[in-house]
Computed example of a mutant assay.
Amino acid sequence: MKNQVNSIYKQAERFAEITKKAIITGNISRAKNYLVFAEQLFKTGSNETKIAITNVYVLSIATFMEMKHCSISNLFPKSLQEEYNQQLLIARL
């Protein structure tokens, strides 16, 4: 089970890197498709998958976007945007 969980987190990490690369190269439509796919995984995946999407993927993409001074609200699907907003609230407490 531990290897499976590590694998899920590693996959979320790699998926975030692929998404960021699409953003860097200006392929925003592809990045949006990746984000939509991540949202589908978040909605339908196992509990471990949801945690990996929230804590690895969303955090990585959102941090990257903020560092580049890009708006994430028009790029993130609704569910992922809500997860990110929850992370911000928790961080402020």
Results as ranks from 00 to 15, higher is better:
residue 33 N to Y: 08
residue 57 Y to M: 03
residue 73 S to F: 06
residue 90 I to A: 09
residue 1 M to P: 13
residue 64 F to R: 03
residue 61 I to K: 04
residue 92 R to A: 10
residue 72 I to R: 09
residue 61 I to W: 05
residue 9 Y to G: 00
residue 52 A to L: 02
residue 77 P to M: 02
residue 29 S to I: 06
residue 67 M to E: 15
residue 40 Q to D: 13
residue 25 T to D: 13
residue 87 Q to P: 00
residue 58 V to P: 05
residue 70 C to N: 11
residue 74 N to L: 03
residue 19 T to K: 08
residue 29 S to N: 15
residue 78 K to I: 14
residue 24 I to K: 14
residue 78 K to H: 15
residue 90 I to E: 10
residue 62 A to R: 02
residue 59 L to F: 02
residue 26 G to Y: 09
residue 92 R to E: 10
residue 89 L to N: 10
residue 26 G to N: 08
residue 80 L to V: 01
residue 71 S to C: 07
residue 49 T to N: 04
residue 63 T to L: 01
residue 23 I to A: 03
residue 17 E to P: 01
residue 74 N to M: 03
residue 51 I to W: 04
residue 45 G to H: 03
residue 62 A to D: 01
residue 25 T to N: 12
residue 9 Y to F: 15
residue 6 N to E: 15
residue 90 I to P: 00
residue 88 L to Q: 13
residue 22 A to H: 13
residue 11 Q to C: 05
residue 11 Q to E: 14
residue 20 K to M: 15
residue 26 G to W: 11
residue 66 E to V: 00
residue 40 Q to K: 15
residue 35 L to P: 05
residue 6 N to W: 12
residue 61 I to A: 02
residue 64 F to G: 06
residue 35 L to C: 08
residue 59 L to D: 06
residue 85 N to D: 11
residue 56 V to T: 10
residue 90 I to G: 00
residue 90 I to T: 09
residue 32 K to S: 08
residue 25 T to F: 09
residue 20 K to D: 04
residue 74 N to P: 00
residue 91 A to R: 11
residue 93 L to I: 12
residue 65 M to Y: 04
residue 24 I to Y: 09
residue 76 F to Q: 02
residue 82 E to N: 11
residue 36 V to P: 04
residue 6 N to H: 13
residue 19 T to N: 09
residue 24 I to T: 14
residue 66 E to G: 00
residue 52 A to W: 07
residue 88 L to D: 00
residue 3 N to W: 08
residue 92 R to T: 10
residue 40 Q to L: 09
residue 48 E to H: 11
residue 39 E to N: 12
residue 92 R to C: 05
residue 21 K to I: 06
residue 37 F to T: 14
residue 16 A to F: 07
residue 56 V to M: 05
residue 52 A to F: 06
residue 16 A to W: 07
residue 87 Q to F: 01
residue 88 L to S: 03
residue 41 L to S: 06
residue 20 K to A: 12
residue 75 L to D: 03
residue 51 I to H: 09
residue 66 E to W: 00
residue 41 L to E: 11
residue 28 I to F: 12
residue 76 F to G: 01
residue 37 F to C: 10
residue 63 T to S: 09
residue 36 V to Q: 14
residue 53 I to L: 07
residue 42 F to Q: 05
residue 10 K to W: 08
residue 60 S to L: 00
residue 78 K to G: 10
residue 49 T to A: 08
residue 10 K to T: 11
residue 22 A to F: 07
residue 24 I to C: 08
residue 4 Q to E: 14
residue 65 M to L: 15
residue 42 F to E: 06
residue 93 L to Y: 09
residue 35 L to G: 04
residue 86 Q to N: 13
residue 59 L to R: 07
residue 59 L to V: 01
residue 69 H to M: 05
residue 23 I to C: 05
residue 83 E to P: 03
residue 3 N to A: 12
residue 61 I to P: 03
residue 70 C to D: 09
residue 79 S to L: 06
residue 39 E to W: 07
residue 45 G to D: 06
residue 85 N to Y: 12
residue 50 K to L: 03
residue 22 A to E: 12
residue 48 E to D: 15
residue 62 A to Q: 00
residue 2 K to N: 13
residue 31 A to W: 06
residue 90 I to H: 08
residue 92 R to F: 08
residue 68 K to E: 14
residue 65 M to A: 05
residue 60 S to H: 10
residue 48 E to K: 04
residue 10 K to F: 10
residue 45 G to K: 04
residue 47 N to I: 12
residue 13 E to G: 13
residue 2 K to W: 12
residue 34 Y to P: 02
residue 92 R to K: 13
residue 79 S to N: 10
residue 31 A to D: 03
residue 37 F to Y: 15
